[in-house]
């Protein structure tokens, strides 16, 4: 069982959360010409890192907020959690 520290609600079990994928992916800017490659990178291409991975989760059975979680994909250890709009240093 993973335990995720929701920055809004505190420590909860993974049963309350839904996974949202790599949080480092950025949507291409709207007000400029977007190349096929940029769309590809946004929609499909993923690094899928082994080790520290910054990812999105939604606290779907709790506050329903999207959050960022820094987790090790090899050991499942969770290091830090952030609010969705928080900058991660």
């Amino acid at each position: 069982m993973l335990y995720i520290n929701c920055p809004h609600c505190g420590m909860r079990s993974q049963n309350e959360f839904s996974y949202g994928g790599d949080a480092s992916v950025k949507r291409p800017e709207l007000n400029k010409e977007v190349s096929d490659q940029e769309w590809d990178n946004f929609v499909y291409n993923r690094k899928s890192l082994r080790g520290k991975h910054l990812e999105l989760w939604q606290h779907i059975s709790g506050c329903r907020q999207w959050i960022k979680v820094e987790r090790d994909t090899a050991t499942h250890e969770i290091f830090r959690t952030f609010k969705a709009d928080e900058e991660v240093a």
Partner: peptide, 13 residues
Amino acid sequence: DGYNSYAQRGNLP
């Protein structure tokens, strides 16, 4: 299990 993983072991939920 639903999240990126290289662990080769799963969780109970």
